[in-house]
Design a binder for these strands. Structure first.
Lengths: 225, 225
DNA sequence: CGCGATTTTGATCAATGTCAAAGGTGGTGG
DNA sequence: CCACCACCTTTGACATTGATCAAAATCGCG
């Protein structure tokens, strides 16, 4: 895989890796920083589909000539490994193991999207927020297992959270306050502390197995890095 | 692929192909009938993730030992081609083209899930219903191009629609009535007629390209059939 | 014909959105 | 080092959407 990369590039916070509606001839392995995928409606309403962490693979679309179905924006400054998407399928044909990993990665993304669908479609604001915070907490932990403790760095605004959960940022604010008042979480600045993970998981109906989906040793690993 | 199938089986309407929380050692190519994938919360709330039509591939999960993250239920009587999932990865390794197709299929499912996320998260009830009806209309048409015309058979209850859209069936009913009163659609029994596709697409913010995603000839085809 | 499931409608209620304005915060340039 | 500015958070008052509860009408089917 390394042979095909065009190099490592950095992107400033707020910039987009690619845009919905345009074709993209690059793919990315996120090395450092946070990115989110999102869709925009004509009138500006925004749905955040997923927050992606280092290790994520971005920009793959099975149909290369088709315009991207979503955009991807950097939340923080980002470092990413860039690949041309020109010859993905040839590459996959030449390296079956890569195709397998791609299937694995896409499938995991899809499972996460399903959790998000259920979260948005069938849970209350309180449950949704609790669920997202737990998801991000455990995903960040998984991504960087070193800092044991009850807090992570969370570079999101309340608007990000709202757009991911189908809520307004105002309502996210009120919901977070109530969770704070119940001594379940503490969100100060860009730090999230999970004070009562069990109660929170109970509220959220959070199943860490379903959300985290680690690869098994006998099965494919991530594409890169 | 055919060499690996254990055979064609039929399932009655209302039965489940597999259940969330259990492991499954079978995969299915849907040959005839409608199926939906769904998740259930502890208290019974249900989220329908996707309605699947003939040609769909069901039951693949990258991590075979893990319990299924969702269930799959037959809406109508169903005929499906059944495969053991025991040795998917060996199979994929032996047939790289299959892995590629799997990546393609999963990626398409994921794209559809993204549309659903935006639909549920950021659209009003009226927009959601319009969007779903158009999606199903065009997908059914794509699946069976023979019956040109403005109507399709739609074997869903209003509760199915509600559970797919994060609404109650009561509200779906009222919303459908308003769409009918505006002469946009006609839903009688199990037949859906799209009377004014353009206005409807306008309301729904519906982009048929994004939802339908046909394979290109140079790129992978569906797994089977 | 009769029964269970589904659709339809009404009345009322709760959750969340909208609008508006007042604090905070961090970063940047003078 | 300070002042300013853009952006973010927080809070209040009020509006609206969609949920809930309940009951009647209708449909499909044995």
């Amino acid at each position: 895989m390394d042979r095909y990369k065009t190099g490592i590039r950095t992107f400033p916070a707020g910039s987009d890796l690619y845009y919905q509606g345009e074709t993209s001839d690059e793919m990315y392995t996120l090395l450092d920083g946070w990115v989110f995928r999102y869709q925009i409606l004509e009138d500006g309403r925004r749905q955040i589909l997923e927050f992606t962490l280092p290790g994520a693979f971005l920009g793959f679309q099975p149909n290369r000539q088709a315009p991207m179905t979503h955009s991807a924006q950097c939340i923080t400054d980002v470092a990413a490994c860039v690949f041309p998407s020109r010859n993905v399928f040839e590459l996959f044909r030449a390296n079956p193991e890569l195709a397998l990993r791609m299937a694995w990665i896409t499938s995991r993304d899809w499972t996460l999207a399903q959790e998000h669908l259920t979260n948005i479609g069938r849970r209350t604001a309180r449950e949704r927020v609790a669920h997202l915070l737990l998801e991000l907490f455990y995903r960040v932990r998984l991504c960087d297992p070193s800092p044991r403790g009850d807090s992570i760095e969370l570079p999101l605004t309340q608007e990000h959270i709202g757009d991911a959960l189908g809520l307004t940022s105002v309502h996210v604010n009120r919901t977070l306050r109530r969770l704070r008042e119940a001594n379940l979480v503490a969100v100060e600045g860009h730090t999230l502390r999970i004070l009562d993970p069990d109660t929170l998981a109970d509220i959220a109906g959070f199943d860490s197995e379903a959300v985290l989906q680690r690869p098994l040793s006998t099965e494919p690993r991530p594409l890169h890095g």
